[in-house]
Design a binder for these strands. Sequence first.
DNA 1: CTTGGCACTCGCGGCGTACGAGTGCCAAGT
DNA 2: ACTTGGCACTCGTACGCCGCGAGTGCCAAG
Lengths: 339, 339
Amino acid sequence: MLDDRKLEVLRAIVEDFVSTNEPVGSKSLAERHSLGVSPATVRNDMAALEDEGFITHPHTSAGRIPTDKGYRLFVDRLSSVKPLSGAEKRAIQTFLEGAVDLDDVVRRSVRLLAQLTRQVAVVQYPSLSRSAVRHLEIVHLEPNRLLLVTIMDTGRVEQRVLELPAGLSDEEVAQLRQAFGARLHGARLVDVPAALADLPGAAPPAIRPVLTSVMTVVLETLVDQPEERVAIAGTANLTRSALDFPHTLRPVLEALEEQVVLLKLIGEVNDPTTVHVKIGEENSVEGLRSTSVVTVGYGPDSGTYGGLGVVGPTRMDYAASIGSVRAVARYVGDLLAGA
Amino acid sequence: MLDDRKLEVLRAIVEDFVSTNEPVGSKSLAERHSLGVSPATVRNDMAALEDEGFITHPHTSAGRIPTDKGYRLFVDRLSSVKPLSGAEKRAIQTFLEGAVDLDDVVRRSVRLLAQLTRQVAVVQYPSLSRSAVRHLEIVHLEPNRLLLVTIMDTGRVEQRVLELPAGLSDEEVAQLRQAFGARLHGARLVDVPAALADLPGAAPPAIRPVLTSVMTVVLETLVDQPEERVAIAGTANLTRSALDFPHTLRPVLEALEEQVVLLKLIGEVNDPTTVHVKIGEENSVEGLRSTSVVTVGYGPDSGTYGGLGVVGPTRMDYAASIGSVRAVARYVGDLLAGA
DNA sequence: CTTGGCACTCGCGGCGTACGAGTGCCAAGT
DNA sequence: ACTTGGCACTCGTACGCCGCGAGTGCCAAG
């Protein structure tokens, strides 16, 4: 049904349309790509491709453009990832290496990715739920106010202020610090509840009440409502392809402003080690039905830290985007794992 | 030269144009606002206003629209700040009170402001340079790696990892902690260099080298390169007024992606206690010449913490924007000062 | 199955026209 | 001296018409 030449025609259509943003006709296509057949033959193939739903006409007398399904086939079977140039690789490396802390790494990555792909880039901060506690610090701000600072192995730092009904002495705070520190150090987040389970029983009775409230806050911050964060950059790139967004880019911008949405985008990944591509209508997010999203996980083992990716028009250079996303994910993963 | 009625006409033009986004003609203006004069008289006044440069024609047979200069006059002399409704005030309060930490406060404020004004909102994190140190924590990650965590009175937390050539014992770290803690606690940022000046001399010789490098990092982080941050929200609102941006909103989005630009916007304030309005060409930022910016400082004493504001089309409801910006600044200032 | 030929479709750009909102000016009125 | 109604004029917009040409679909011959 779809012989090799038809696939070749589809590839040509996608490539031409991506680069020119104009419906491509049989004649110009036969000329530009040396397919060795006449426009008439190309027309026949096009008709077949249209029957199968891979391409469509905007109107009767116009050329063809790929459908979401056409892009899907293209991405899955017709395109090979474009590796980055040496210069690009070096640029990534030197740019990321200058980062001084996690915030800096994330912000640099997201800008970098936006620049490389000329699209909107999204980078998730290392997920709390998949990190391990490196240190829990309890700061005695005032007699009845504590500041809890949790430092994760990924470099993330979470803080929370805690008001207590009664004042505490410095020694009591030291006891608290010791009790938590010993149990939490190195604990993966999933193990935190277990690590703390026996704590109230083991502690000196005097500090038990305050210990319990600290424990509650710790569990809340880290386990019950772990705060996921994302950074975004390159929204100005959306205006380059203003033509691609049928009803203005309003809904796209709106969707991108919602942290929840971004997290959903990045999180909807079965296998975090491979690059995922969602094309047009495949997106579960309403406002992004006219865009494509390329995502991948990053982190030491099979992308466990978090995700990152780009959002752009369905008419995007998938090969390049996939390459850039994968490369940046690799560098960021290595950088954070080594930190 | 500009009698009261002419001013009244200008006000009417601004108000009509702001609400309809269409050039306003003498007739409809005379009808809608009960000026008690005929369209012909209004025309005469309009001609005078145009001579003075307060309004202009897009083309010969169109109505008038205000110029930047016209808006300026309107803002300075013809409009009074619109106070928020009780419901709005309550909404602000309850919305902000739910915040758990500084990040949360800032993120909530910026979203709130974007929603209230239906424009792009920008909120600066409390400036490091105007805060005081509440606590400096030194965490002993590994023998030769320290994590410095600085907690400011505004709730800001800065972290920096420090690699040392040689390993340290826990006691040595404790000594460091003590040396810095005593001197820095409560120090305003400008006083930090002075507070630390005698430190190398006073310390036990054994830890002097490491103490010096820690000191360098502290000074770097807090004094030499204090990191200013801003949050932004509501960019999707720009698309509502797409018509207002002559050559698409590309340059606006680009400008808003630059932290440096945003800081410049917010920072260019002589007197942080009053609301500042920059209209169109008055903006020093190239990309924002077609927008207006409304900013104010926030914080306990005369807005010393930082700034916040909104960015929108010159055709904006200044009275409402100024009111919202001021109100949010007040609430945020109170909230952070009390925290 | 491929190819050249051919009639057909239809979006787009250019052009001319009618419309109407809005202006500027002037002469008369208060 | 200011206000007002009248009036001619401007000019941008909407609309309809037309011709061009890219592109298609079909068919019959190779």
